[in-house]
């Protein structure tokens, strides 16, 4: 039985703005399930006494060095990966608020 249902695949696709064919949905359903199941191996560990964390190096209060404004990228460089450029701006297909 797959861990990830078809409706979950569809939901994630919406969040990622992806259009999937029925075939792709089926394929992703099994692929994503396989991945999640693999990570699920960790469930075997007893973590009751381990506090949750998202950071293991223990540093706090890391801030920018003050009064050091860095030089921004040259505009040409900033736009160099853009598929399309117009008047110094990136261009994408029309997006309207969903």
């Amino acid at each position: 039985m797959s861990t990830i249902s078809k409706s979950t695949v569809e939901h994630v696709a919406v969040l990622c703005s992806l259009t999937l064919s029925e075939k792709e949905k089926e394929r992703l359903e099994s692929m994503l399930s396989e991945t999640v199941d693999f990570i699920g191996v960790l469930e075997e560990l007893d973590t009751n006494s381990v506090p949750e964390t998202y950071q293991v190096i223990g540093t706090t209060n890391v801030f920018q060095k003050s009064d050091r404004v860095s030089v921004s990228l040259d505009r040409k460089e900033a736009l160099s990966n853009a598929a399309k450029i117009k008047n110094g701006k990136f261009v994408t297909g029309a997006v309207f608020d969903r």
């Binding site: 920018q64 050091r68 404004v69 860095s70 921004s72 990228l73 505009r75 900033a78 736009l79 008047n87 110094g88 701006k89 990136f90």
Partner: peptide
Amino acid sequence: CGCSNTDLFDAEPNTRVC
């Protein structure tokens, strides 16, 4: 980031980016 945050309104598009 270290990009300047002053007078952004008057800057040319995509010139205060990193």
